[in-house]
């Protein structure tokens, strides 16, 4: 699933952008070190291929439903992890711009979720490990399938975490995990099978393509591998513990997750609200208006308000509603008048 802007907080979105930019910068350095300028058009055209091939419907035997190619693992296998990651990134940039598939702010998250786990965790730790003993149809098949599934599982789990840390949804952690992981297991199996079928075909038809890609990329040093392995283990362990908790103490976990995310949510705009209310004091006729932040103001020792407004108040509710409607009306009028003015200009120009 593509993460959407609306589900992200600026903090999480920004952090993921930074993480993605870091990985991308590192990958660019690595690809440039290869000095294989041939790789640039290869990456570009392969990106377009994955983009187009994602739209092919593959019917799943005995189910009547259909699935698609994922792309991340295929790119890693054919181009190596660094070029694969960059290519995945450019696919997602184009999807975000032209198809609004995942937003621009969520782009960092999406590139990370769909590119990082496949190219830098599932590919080196699973695919490469299985292939290390030598190429065979069976090993290519299992390696590709497993790596695709695990890459997507990690990506889906990452989506859950990013959403929860953003605190826009009330969806409890356990429920969300139980919702996301099985769905993505199913998707991952299909994606994995398609990818495995394609890679298997290529290996039979043009084995040099697969072997060259895997050999060309000398994974810069074991240290990175170790770091990644560590990251993966931590992720799997936390994931495991969390899901165990989720099934064992659903209420407890919900409570704690809600609490943490709720706090983040409410603390962030606190400073803003203090400034706001101090300004409000000066402009006396303005009501101290906001929905839930009210409760907080009581606790966040706000001396400037003479009386603590109750959180729920008919007056503020109505004024909010009326103000909202007025704003929308105003927006509509603005749009319409620009339209009319432009039309008139055009008419007079003719």
């Amino acid at each position: 699933m593509h993460m959407a802007d609306a589900l992200l907080s600026p903090g999480v979105g920004g952090t993921m952008w930074a993480a993605t930019a870091g990985v991308a910068a590192y990958s660019i350095k690595k690809v440039q070190n290869d000095i294989d300028e041939q790789k640039i058009p290869l990456m570009g055209v392969m990106g377009a291929f994955v983009f187009a091939a994602q739209m092919i419907n593959f019917t799943i035997p005995a189910t009547g439903s259909s699935g698609h190619l994922g792309g991340g693992m295929l790119l890693a296998i054919l181009l190596g992890p660094y070029a694969g990651f960059l290519t995945m990134a450019s696919i997602l940039v184009i999807q975000a711009l032209f198809f609004a598939d995942g937003g621009l702010l969520a782009l960092g998250s999406n590139i990370f979720n769909l590119g990082f786990y496949t190219c830098f965790i599932a590919y080196p730790l699973i695919y490469k490990r299985i292939i290390r003993k030598g190429y065979s149809t069976g090993r290519i098949f299992t390696g590709t399938l497993l790596a695709s599934i695990i890459g997507l599982q990690l990506g889906a789990f990452s989506v859950v975490l990013q959403t929860l840390f953003s605190g826009k949804t009330e969806l409890p952690f356990g429920t969300f995990v139980m919702l996301m992981q099985p769905i993505h297991l199913a998707i991952g199996v299909v994606e994995g099978l398609v990818t495995a079928a394609v890679v298997g075909f290529i290996w039979k038809a043009r084995p040099e393509i697969i072997e060259k890609a895997a050999a060309g990329e000398a994974l810069g040093g074991i240290s990175i591998k170790k770091v990644l392995a560590g990251l993966a283990i931590v992720a799997v362990i936390t994931g495991g513990i969390f899901s165990w908790f989720a099934s064992a103490y659903p209420d407890g976990l919900e409570w704690s997750m809600l609490n943490t995310s709720g706090k983040e949510e409410l603390e962030a705009p606190d400073g803003i609200h203090q400034t706001l209310s101090s300004i409000q004091e000066k402009i006396a006729f303005l009501p101290d208006y906001s929905f839930k932040n009210q409760e907080q103001k009581v606790s966040a020792d706000a001396p400037e308000t003479e009386e603590a407004w109750p959180a729920v108040n008919v007056g503020t509710s109505v004024s909010g509603l009326v103000g909202g409607v007025m704003t929308l009306l105003l927006a509509a009028i603005t749009g319409f008048s620009i339209y009319v003015i432009k039309k008139r200009e055009k008419a007079s120009a003719v």
Partner: peptide
């Protein structure tokens, strides 16, 4: 970096070619 932009533009350019081919 130029490398990424070049790559991005190439992907964008060949999407229409490859969608037609697919």
């Amino acid at each position: 970096p130029r490398l990424f932009i070049m790559q991005l533009l190439l992907t964008y350019r060949y999407i229409s070619v490859l969608i037609e081919e697919v």
